[in-house]
Each structure stands twice: as C-alpha cells, then as structure tokens.
Design a protein around this nucleic acid. Structure first.
Length: 422
DNA sequence: AACATCCACAACCGCCAATGG
DNA sequence: ACCATTGGCGGTTGTGGATGT
C-alpha cells in the first residue's frame, strides 16, 4: 500500500494510511474522555501519530456511534437521488438528511453506483425526480405563473429516454443563475429567462393544482409517497451536480445523437466551436420532425424551436401546437438576473433541446434494477468540459443544418458514434 | 490458473470559512 | 485589522477484493 508511507512516518512523524484497531481504540478512548473537537490535541495527549484532521475524519466516518453501516436501502438511495437533484454535490448537507450516514459514504455511493448509470447511458435520476426537478426549476427561474408554464403531458411509450444535464456548474452555468441542476426533461418545457413560451392548450395543465396532482400521481405511481423527503430546499443559489452529463438510454437514441445523425448524411457540418456563429442563420432551423410522431404528447404534435439569428442571448422558444422551431423572431427580454456569457447561451440551448422522457414510464424498480450489473464499456466516467464542448459543437452544427426528410424518428439513433460520451 | 479490469471503499489533499488571540 | 489555528467540505487517489477474460 503505500498511500504515502503507509505505516510509516509521514511529515512530522505522523502516520498515514489505514487505521489500525489499536489506533481506533486510542482515538475512541480519547473522545470518550475529552469529547469531540480539538482534534489536534489528540496527538499531543495520546501520542497517536495522526494529524487532527485524520482523527476527525476517522471518528466521523467510522468510529462515532450511531453510524449506519452496510448498503444503502432503496429508500436511502432514492433520498440520495432526490437530495442530489436538489443540492448537487453537497454531500455533507445530504448526509444531514440520512441519519447514520456520512458524507463520505454518500459521496462514494454517488461516485460509483450512480456514475455507473451514466456510463451505461441510463437516466441519472428516477423519472419522478426528473419531473419534479424540472417543475421546480421552472417555477424557480421564471416569473411566469405556473399556469402559463405547465409541465407537458407524459409522453408516449415509443419515445426515447434522453436528458441533458451538465457536468459542472462552471461549464454550463458559471453564473449560478440556472442554479438547479441542468437536467431537463423536455416533456416538461422549461422556459428560460426572457423566453417567450406559448403552450398549446390541449393536453397541458392549466393550474398549479393540476401540476401538483400530476406530480403526486407520478410519485404515487412509483410508490414513493411514503418516502421521507427532505425539506423543500430550492434556494436561489444552488449548485449544480458536477457529475451530470448527457445521458441517454443505450440504443434508444438521444436527441443530440438524433440531430447529428440526421444532419450528417447530407449535412454540412461546420463546427467551428463558436456557438453564436453556429446557431446563427438566416433561416429557421426546424426541428419539428425530431419530435414528431408520438413524441409530442397527447396532441401528437411536434415542437419547434427557433434559434435567434444573432445567436447571443436572443434565444427564444416558440411553442406551438405543431412544431418547435429555432429562429430569430424573438428578442430576449432583460431580466434582473440577466447575464450574457456564452456559457449561458449554451445552457439555454441545452434547455431548448426537447428531451423525450420515456423514463417517465420506467418504474422505479426498473430504474434501480439496472443499477447493478450494467454494461460498462470501460470508458472513463470522467466527462470533461472538452467533451461537453465537443458535443455542443456537434449539436449546434447540426442545428445549423436542418435535416430534411420525412421520417426522422428520434427512436432509431444510437449514441455509439458520439465521441466523448459514455 | 494467471492476468486484467472493474468496483467499492477508505483515506488523503487542498481549499475555504469561522474563530480566537 | 491581521494572522494563526481549527474544523468542514468536496475532490481525488490508492488499495484490495470481485469479476471477467
């Protein structure tokens, strides 16, 4: 082992590496007598060759009473997911909601089991969490009353699980403005500041009560109502989960992949890496057929997004019954928290990408079942900003080359040729 | 059986904030 | 006000066991 010196003398004769039972006994005895705190005194008073920090960690993570050892229960797992959706990588805060669990445990849990899901291309969060997150985010960041920004209806079963999220707040939300995790399910349209949204009247919720009922139904359908949810914490300043990334079900085809696949055959990819230039164009980029067919919910209508011509901070989403278009019609209205970094534009673009959330139809049992024994392609779980940047280049390049063709189903595009993903 | 790879976990590191002198 | 100390937190790394080839 030699984690540093292992059993040796480190700096100042302090030992590093795994703790021995004798050391544990010394530390426990010390705490029993002196109480917690003043950890640097442990070495002085007991002769234990460990730094105060190490003592504190050892006590907090392994020796203190009431620690709950062993695997996380399903309830705990779900709670972790929900907390992570709300708090991001705030392990200590998450641990506060899980009696007997340490932040280190939760962190390790996340960094292994959950990230494994990402590598497998599975949704990071259970569908109910996704939906709730989207809904909360939507309510948080926009002045639109809920009745004007309702979650879209559940999608049909032949749709694709895909969601976009960010790997770090610094990449896609450096300002912290979009403080909730960048996980967006586009069956729950999330308007952005200054975006003008027009929702079709059919198949949508019209009141907050309806949304809540739907949410409760969704939760209830997965048997989650009894879970001890943490207090509703949606502060204005919330950090993004750093571990999130583009994910999609294997073989299901994500939107990003779809975009690429659709454009590439006859497309003219002109990725120069500059989002504003890439998204600019004289003509609207129609994406309507990307979400066509059964994707559009009950109405069956697809959606269009219109990207602005000037690219920067002029994004607008026009939601119609028939399509989603990206174009230039609308200017972004100033908001009090308005910022104009390119990254935010990327963030906005990501948020405009419709995510077809078949995960909504995935029972939690299935969601958890796939948590172990998932495929592992051996690729690193680390998703770098470079990866995201490349994806964004590709995505935007695709957007600038509208696909033409009648049958551009979102279903049939694997992610296998997506560089840097999974 | 040997080797490679993956996974889970423990521990360390660096940074930061709070506190007290 | 400044500085040192202490504790907390999140990220990262190393290790050993499990699993696959």
């Amino acid at each position: 082992m030699t984690r540093s010196d292992g059993g040796g003398s480190g700096n100042g004769g302090l030992k590093k590496g795994p703790w021995t039972a004798a050391e544990d006994a010394i530390l426990m005895e010390y705490v029993r007598k002196q109480g917690e705190g003043n950890w640097n005194a442990v070495q002085k008073n007991t002769g234990l060759a460990r730094c105060g920090k190490s003592c504190r960690l050892r006590w907090a993570n392994h020796l203190r009473p009431n620690l709950k050892k062993g695997a996380f229960s399903p309830d705990e797992e779900l709670l972790i997911l929900r907390l992570h959706a709300q708090l991001g990588n705030k392990w200590a805060r998450m641990a506060a909601h899980l009696p007997g669990r340490t932040d280190n445990e939760i962190k390790n849990y996340w960094n292994t089991r959950i990230k494994r899901r990402q590598r497998a291309g599975l949704p990071l969060y259970p569908p109910d969490v996704q939906r709730e997150l989207a809904f909360k985010r939507q309510r948080l960041h926009h002045n639109h009353p809920p009745s004007t920004n309702p979650p879209a209806p559940l999608l049909t079963n032949n749709t694709t699980i895909t969601h976009f999220s960010s790997t770090s707040s610094s990449l896609l939300d450096p300002t912290g403005y979009f403080s909730t995790p960048m996980l967006t399910t586009f069956n729950a349209p999330l308007p952005l500041p200054g975006h003008h949204l027009h929702f079709p009247s059919s198949g949508m919720f019209h009141t907050q009560q309806q949304q809540q009922q739907q949410m409760e139904f969704n939760l209830g359908s997965f048997g989650l109502n009894s879970l001890p949810l943490p207090p509703p914490v949606f502060p204005n300043k919330m950090e993004l989960p750093s571990t999130q990334m583009f994910t999609a079900l294997p073989f299901s085809g994500g939107l990003l992949d779809t975009l690429l696949q659709e454009v590439q055959p006859g497309g003219h990819l002109q990725s120069n890496g500059l989002l504003p230039e890439l998204v600019s164009g004289d003509q609207d980029v129609k994406l309507s057929h990307l979400c066509g067919g059964g994707v559009g919910g009950e109405g069956g209508g697809s959606r269009g997004v219109t990207l602005p011509q000037d690219g920067l901070m002029e994004s607008a989403v026009k939601w119609t019954d028939s399509n989603w278009s990206i174009g230039t019609q609308m200017k972004k209205e100033p908001t009090e928290n308005d910022t104009s970094p390119v990254e935010e534009d990327i963030s906005q673009l990501l948020n405009m990408i419709p995510t077809v959330n078949a995960a909504a139809a995935t029972p939690v049992s299935e969601w958890y079942k796939s948590d172990s024994g998932e495929i592992s392609n051996g690729h690193s779980s680390v998703v770098t900003e470079e990866h995201i940047g490349l994806e964004m280049q590709q995505l935007v390049s695709s957007l600038s080359n509208p696909p033409e063709g009648p049958d551009l189903s979102i279903r049939s595009y694997p992610w296998s040729n997506m560089p840097g993903i999974c």
